[in-house]
């Protein structure tokens, strides 16, 4: 039995009929073809699927799509400017080589943006604590921390 859902994703209204058990990550990737939201562990631990739901970072593999009914969703595809220019946080990841294989990066960027919104001047400790829900299997945390610091500074400028 399908249920209707509607929400705003990256500024666009979307509506669909889905099976109730459809996860939000699945809906974004398979129905909307927004494959920038990665599914790493599928158990709510790795954070690669992090998106913003009504402005808060959440793990899209750990939500039913129905729980996002009526919500404002932003995925990694909605972060850069319309002309393709990278968001300062994305540019900082590139500048500091804050990615190796790049699989965790969309989730890292989405979590970092939420962190900087709460703490505009995060210390290294605050960044490491704030990214507790995001794992990098390449273990490239050092450059990720540097990228978030630079990204946070650039976002103020």
């Amino acid at each position: 039995m399908g249920i209707p859902v509607s929400m705003t994703v990256n500024g666009k209204a979307v509506a669909a009929e889905i099976e109730p058990r459809t996860l939000l990550a699945q809906f974004l990737r398979e129905h909307l073809r927004l494959t920038g939201t990665h599914v790493g562990c599928d158990t709510g631990q790795c954070g690669a699927c992090t998106i913003h739901l009504n402005g808060r970072a959440v793990k899209a593999c750990n939500l039913l799509t129905a729980q996002a009914q009526g919500a404002q969703i932003v995925t990694i595809e909605g972060v850069a400017a319309a002309n393709g220019e990278l968001h300062p946080m994305q540019a900082a990841f590139r500048q500091h080589h804050g990615l190796q294989c790049g699989f965790c990066t969309p989730g890292m960027v989405m979590a970092a943006l939420d962190l900087v919104k709460r703490q505009p001047n995060p210390t290294e400790d605050a960044i490491r604590a704030g990214l507790d829900g995001n794992l990098c299997r390449c273990t490239g945390y050092h450059n990720i921390v540097k990228a978030v610091q630079t990204g946070a500074a650039a976002m103020k400028g």
Binding site: V58, A111, D114, D132
Partner: peptide
């Protein structure tokens, strides 16, 4: 509790 994303939900 959990991590930041978990605490948001």
């Amino acid at each position: 509790i959990g991590d930041h994303q978990v605490r948001n939900m």
